[in-house]
Simulated scan of single mutants.
Amino acid sequence: MIQRFDTGPRMSEMTTHNDVAYLAGQVPEDTGVDIVGQTEQVLHAIDDLLQQAGTDKTRILRAEIFLADMADFNGMNEAWEKWVPQGATPARATVQAKLAKPDWKIEIVITAAIA
């Protein structure tokens, strides 16, 4: 069974299937803050979605991180390393990308196990 969360006309914020949660790219709401603040917002949104699916950040299988500017890599990692559980770090890729809105500094896509 496929379950969809926060479904809109273009996309769902998350889908689940076969005990795996697939999150849409999460972006910051307040773009008036630096990369650390934007990353913290995105990580909070990820926590909320994972909770809705009945899982948490210790069950993340893969993280795909898109930065508008690789100069923000260290600041992003500062927030990431405070948030990610040591010993349960997921496979991860980080790339520079042109994001959909110019004020977004970061977008993160997550895949996580549910059971």
Rank of each mutant, 00 (worst) to 15 (best):
T89P: 08
I106F: 04
Q52Y: 03
Q3E: 09
P102D: 12
G32C: 04
N77S: 13
W83R: 01
D56R: 14
G32M: 00
P90H: 07
W104A: 06
A100T: 06
P90N: 06
P9S: 15
N77R: 14
E13T: 07
T55M: 06
A112G: 06
A93D: 11
A79W: 06
I65L: 14
K101G: 02
A79T: 01
G54Y: 08
D103L: 13
R62T: 00
R62V: 05
R62W: 11
L61I: 01
T94Y: 09
R59N: 15
N74S: 09
M1Y: 09
A112N: 06
T16F: 04
I106A: 01
T55W: 13
R4V: 09
T58Y: 11
E13K: 11
M76P: 02
N77K: 15
T94C: 10
V95C: 07
V20Q: 10
L99F: 05
R62S: 01
R4G: 05
A53W: 08
I65T: 14
A91C: 02
N77C: 13
I35H: 12
G32R: 10
Q51Y: 11
Q38F: 07
G54A: 01
A21V: 05
R59S: 11
L99C: 01
A112L: 04
N18H: 13
T94E: 00
A24N: 14
A97G: 10
H44R: 14
T15V: 11
I60E: 02
D56P: 12
T31M: 08
T89R: 15
K57I: 07
T94K: 10
P85W: 08
G37C: 00
T55I: 03
G87C: 06
I46M: 09
G87W: 08
A45L: 07
R92N: 01
L67D: 05
D69T: 07
L23R: 06
T15M: 12
A45H: 12
Q52D: 03
T111Q: 15
T16S: 03
V95S: 00
D47I: 04
T58H: 10
P28Y: 09
D103Y: 12
T15D: 09
G54C: 03
P90D: 04
P85Q: 04
G87P: 08
I2P: 06
A112S: 09
F5Y: 14
A68S: 14
T39F: 14
A45Y: 11
A88K: 11
F66E: 15
A91G: 09
K82I: 04
A100W: 12
V42G: 02
G37A: 01
Q38Y: 10
E78H: 13
A115I: 09
K82D: 02
E78F: 03
T58G: 05
A24H: 15
H44W: 13
N74A: 08
T7G: 08
L43I: 00
Q38E: 02
L99E: 01
R10C: 07
S12Q: 01
D103F: 04
H17S: 08
T31C: 07
T58P: 11
S12G: 03
H44P: 10
V33W: 12
Q26K: 13
T31N: 13
R10T: 10
I106L: 05
E13Y: 07
F73K: 12
M1I: 03
M1F: 02
G87N: 10
I114W: 05
T15E: 11
I65Y: 09
T7S: 07
R92D: 00
A71Y: 04
P28G: 00
V84G: 05
V27M: 15
I65V: 15
T7F: 00
S12W: 03
I60Q: 06
